[in-house]
Design a protein around this nucleic acid. Sequence first.
DNA 1: TTAGGGTTAG
Length: 809
Amino acid sequence: MIKLNFKFLNFYFKSFHQCIHLRSNHFHFANSSRLKIDSNRVLKELSKSGRINEARKLFDKMPERDEFTWNTLIAAYAASGKLTEAMELFKETPIKSSITWNSLISGYCQHGMETEAFDLFSRMQVEGQRPSQYTMGSILRLCSTSGLLRRGKQVHGYVIKTQFESNDYVATGLVDMYAKCNCISEAEYLFEMMPDKKNHVMWTAMVAGYSQNGEAFKAIKCYRDMVVEGVASNQFTFPTVLTACAAVQAGNFGAQVHSFIVRSGFEANVFVQSALVGMYAKCQDLDSAMKVLENMEVDDVVSWNSMLVGCVRLGCAEDALSLFRNMHARDMKLDNFTYPSVLNCFASMQDVNNAMSVHCLIIKTGFEASKLVNNALVDMYAKQGNMDCAFQVFDHMPNKDVVSWTSLVTGYARNNRHEEALKLFCDMRLAGIYPDHVVLASVLSASAELTVLEFGQQVHANFIKSGLQSSISVDNSLVTVYAKCGCIDDASRVFDSMQIRDVISWTALIVGYAQNGKGRDSVRFYDQMIASGTKPDFITFIGLLFACSHAGLLERGRWYFASMQKAYGIKPGPEHYACMIDLLGRSGKLVEADALLNQMDVEPDAAVWKALLAACRVHGNLELGERAAKNLFELEPTNAVPYIMLSNMYSAARKWEDAARIRRTMKSRGISKEPGCSWIEVTSKVHTFMSEDRGHPRTTEIYSKIDEIMVSIKEAGYEPDISFALHNMDEEGKELGLAYHSEKLAVAFGLLSLPPGAPVRIFKNLRVCGDCHTAMKYISRVYHRHIILRDSNCFHHFKEGQCSCGDYW
DNA sequence: TTAGGGTTAG
């Protein structure tokens, strides 16, 4: 096709030069208008093939120019984006027809220059030129590509006033404009209003409209209606409907469309072919996609990109890489869609070396400026755990969008740098970037990990104010954040408000209730989940078994544990065994717990041995406890907890020598106990306390409050349990040491600074000590306060002298 | 002059 054009061009060029030659040789040329027609044709061809400078030279040399000559060159300048030149020429044009105006307006529209386009549109009318269907078409196209809904609506009003409504071009432009501005019902209304005999362009615009508005099934139905109506499809229709098929994985229908394409003779069109590759790849039929790709005559980068995306999505990283190498070998012009796919591939493969090489290639080929590519780079480095590189790429980006920020926020969160994730989110807001549901879900998850309730609440408020549509990922994160912050009622409220729920929503709720000491509710919700037809997954069962163990539901736990493999084919992992051993251990069934541990077909991890050790401590089984502790010494050599637990067990059994030996071993191995630390959030500020801490500005008040608390709760029956005091000192000293444990300091501060009746929420890095646990129960009764203490294991809701954990933690 | 189409990350 291209070759033919060139031939055509050469022919006219020749005749043009011949003509000039003839004139310069003083031959009388009988028909000067013939010369003008020929020159106009050459001008047109030059313009069409983008040889604008040559077109200009010809234009300058032309002795006679007519309206067509001027319009053609204006249109050529305008189409190629040289709008200043187009405008200059426009000003010089002796006779300005509707075509002249349209040529210029069309250029401004094509290049998204809203102000200039609309300015000319009104000037044209002031100067007495009536806009034509082409003017309206161009203007509407500008509105649709730039998403100018308000302008579009104004134009719609103008269309009604000027009775252009029944014009096919204009009506199609309106349908397209509304569809592209996400007003699919308006587009649909106009489409339905059109007479029965709709042309194929309008049908295609409607199919595309549905497809682009996430209504793929409606798009497919619309396409079928079009076929039933007997309207022929063309090279524009097929890609549109194939994209809709890809969106909803309608591979069978897509294949039918494919055969229709073959029968209609459009299978050689590159747009159709690339859409076929994309459709098959997204429908997970990589073989068919590959077949189409192999049959293509040209190396079309879009089609190859589609294939690449298909491979990456299906996890065929090796295939994706070889495709990429092949593209490179074929000397194809890689674009800003190619790189993100291949970078994605390196992220999932954790391929650091190739990642660096491709990053170099990106710099060399000038794609460093592409936002799409940079966003993918940030994401890739973050997924590889290389936050420095991720930040560097991000930092150098001139135009960061919400995706760039999200990639980095999520990266920090994924690498357990939650505080930085939250800080970055605040920076993003300060930079004036509006959050969307992806970044909100991510930042809420980070808030949940940090259990920063007030921050989470602010993000929640932000989400409500944003007017964003509800999203399952945001709602799931909200359930998690409230549950993890001890606000199980709020978590439940979010869950109840959800229109659609998935296994993650149910699991978040089940885990939430279990962590908040309401295991029986977890079990109830699990039953509801099954009744609703949602299948549990690996994590659901961790939550469920955790719930059973904390609620002491031995038989149910056994039953669920058996059902996970039998009914749902989920092989128990160490996490599930840990819950089961905890459950058996709590119920005093140490022999059975030990037996279960021995029959595990996966390697027991630290959590499993910790569960066993905790059970041994409660039930005083030294022999099994020693075994559990020894395994823990190997698995977690720097963890002080098993040393302390074992030593305490020896002490409790009055084996002082053994207790001292363990302490000595711990010391000689350089292992020290992680200092206990509690914190409380008061008016958006986190106050942290260590044991016997005197660093807080209100220390004096806090210590007198503790003294007051101790007197009050002792009157109510509290007796300090000095077995939890580890220091080698006299009884009184031990009692005082106990009184100044970090969680007690935090609760004293909470009672001092929070409004009367407000719940006191305390967080502790370690498990709460037994004496503090008892004290908290008394405090909740004497001061009539709801005290929520989250320790490293679970939530303790203290209310009127009772704790939600049932005194087992 | 001439409406409608294929790749799209977190």
